[in-house]
C-alpha cells in the first residue's frame, strides 16, 4: 500500500518536473507565439469580452452623457427578440431569406457552369474560366459601388439599356421590394464564381475511369450525373456551401454600399442594421446585443459544418 502510494507520488513529481522541463525546453516556442497572442488579446479578445458585457447594460450616447449607464440584464435581448413585430426579428428573418436565395443560386449556377466547363474536349475553356472568375477576383467593395451606379435611375446602365430597347425604366433602388431583388442580383453575380471554382477543382480530380465504366454499362447522362458526379462533388461542395452561407449571412458591403439598408429599412440585414444602430442611433449596448445574437447563430452554423466535415471524412475512410 505504502509502496504504491510512494510510487504514485514519485510519478506525480516526475510528471511535474517533466512538464516544467518541457516548458523550459520550449522557451523559444513561447517566445514565438507571444507577440501574436498579445496583439489578439489586447486589440480584439479583450474588447470582445468587454463588448459582450456591454450588451447587458443600457449604454448609448444619451445615457453616457447623463451618467445613467446601468446594468439592465437581458433587456436588450428581450427588445431584440421579445415580440414578433420587433424590428430586429424582421431584419433577422430577411437575413435568412437573403442567405437562402443567394446560396441556392450560387451553388446551382456554380455547379451547372462547372459541369459545362468540364465537358471533355471543349475549346476555349481557359478563356471562359478567366472571364467567369472575374466577379470573384475584383474587390467586392469596388463591385458594390459600381453596381450602385449601374442601378442609377437616370444614367445607370440598366435603365439606359431598357430605354435603348424601348422598355420603360425601372426604379431599381427606390422601391423596397425591387431594391431587395436588385441587391440579390448583385450578390448572385458576385458569389457564383467561387462555387464554380470549387466545383471545377473537385471535378478535375474525379477519375475518367468511373465514367468509362459507366458508359460501358450504358449509363445515361443523368445516371452518370446523379450516381457519379454529384456524390463525388459532395466532399468539396458541402464545406464550401457552409462557408458561403456564413459569408452571405454576414455580408455587409453589397447592401450597405448599394442601398444603405433603405429605402425605409426595406433591405436591411443584420450586418447593416447593426452598423446603422451603432452609427446613427449610437445605441452601443443594443448593437452589442445584436452582435452576440448573430454570433450565436454563426457558431451553430459552424458546429453543423464541423459535424458534416467529420461525417464526410469518415465516409471517405470507409
Amino acid at each position: 500500500m505504502n509502496i504504491q502510494k510512494a510510487a504514485t507520488e514519485t510519478s506525480i513529481v516526475v510528471r511535474k518536473t517533466s512538464l516544467l522541463n518541457r516548458i523550459r525546453k520550449n522557451k523559444i516556442a513561447y517566445l514565438y507565439i507571444t507577440p501574436a497572442l498579445l496583439v489578439v488579446f489586447l486589440i480584439s479578445l479583450f474588447p470582445i469580452i468587454y463588448g459582450i458585457g456591454l450588451s447587458f447594460y443600457n449604454m448609448n450616447l444619451y445615457t453616457m452623457g447623463s451618467g445613467t449607464v446601468k446594468f439592465v440584464g437581458l433587456n436588450n435581448y428581450i427588445k431584440a427578440l421579445g415580440s414578433l413585430d420587433a424590428e430586429f426579428l424582421i431584419v433577422l428573418l430577411r437575413t435568412f431569406l437573403w442567405t437562402v436565395i443567394n446560396v441556392f443560386f450560387h451553388v446551382t449556377l456554380g455547379l451547372i457552369i462547372a459541369l459545362v466547363l468540364n465537358r471533355p474536349g471543349l475549346r476555349f475553356k481557359k478563356f471562359y474560366r478567366t472571364i467567369i472568375i472575374l466577379p470573384w477576383a475584383v474587390p467586392q467593395f469596388v463591385t458594390a459601388l459600381v453596381w450602385k451606379m449601374m442601378y442609377n435611375n437616370q444614367f445607370g446602365f440598366f435603365n439606359l439599356f431598357l430605354k435603348t430597347i424601348g422598355l420603360p425604366p425601372v426604379n431599381w433602388l427606390g422601391n423596397g421590394k425591387i431594391a431587395f431583388i436588385s441587391v440579390i442580383i448583385t450578390n448572385i453575380w458576385l458569389g457564383f464564381p467561387f462555387m464554380t471554382m470549387v466545383a471545377t477543382g473537385a471535378l478535375q480530380s474525379i477519375s475518367r475511369e468511373y465514367y468509362e465504366a459507366a458508359e460501358m454499362d450504358g449509363a445515361s447522362f443523368f445516371q452518370k450525373l446523379f450516381s457519379i458526379t454529384l456524390p463525388l462533388l459532395k466532399p468539396a461542395m458541402l464545406p464550401a456551401t457552409i462557408l458561403g452561407t456564413i459569408w452571405t449571412f454576414t455580408n455587409f458591403n453589397v447592401i450597405y454600399l448599394i442601398t444603405g439598408g433603405g429605402p425605409n429599412k426595406a433591405t436591411e440585414i443584420v450586418s447593416t442594421y447593426q452598423f446603422n444602430v451603432l452609427t446613427r442611433q449610437n445605441a452601443y449596448s443594443l448593437a452589442a446585443a445584436y452582435s452576440v445574437i448573430v454570433s450565436i447563430i454563426l457558431i451553430i452554423i459552424t458546429l453543423i459544418n464541423m459535424k458534416v466535415t467529420k461525417a464526410l471524412s469518415q465516409e471517405g475512410v470507409e
Binding site: 489578439v40 489586447l42 486589440i43 480584439s44 479578445l45 479583450f46 474588447p47 470582445i48 468587454y50 463588448g51 459582450i52 456591454l54 450588451s55 449604454m59 450586418s271 447593426q274 452598423f275 451603432l278 452601443y284 448593437a287 452589442a288 452582435s291 452576440v292 448573430v294 454570433s295 454563426l298 457558431i299 459552424t302
Partner: peptide
C-alpha cells in the same frame, strides 16, 4: 474559438482602447 466570437461587439471597446 476566437474566429467565432462577435467581433462587431468589440468596436466600441476598441475605440476606447
Amino acid at each position: 474559438i476566437y474566429m467565432m466570437l462577435p467581433t462587431t461587439a468589440a468596436l466600441i471597446p476598441q475605440l476606447l482602447i
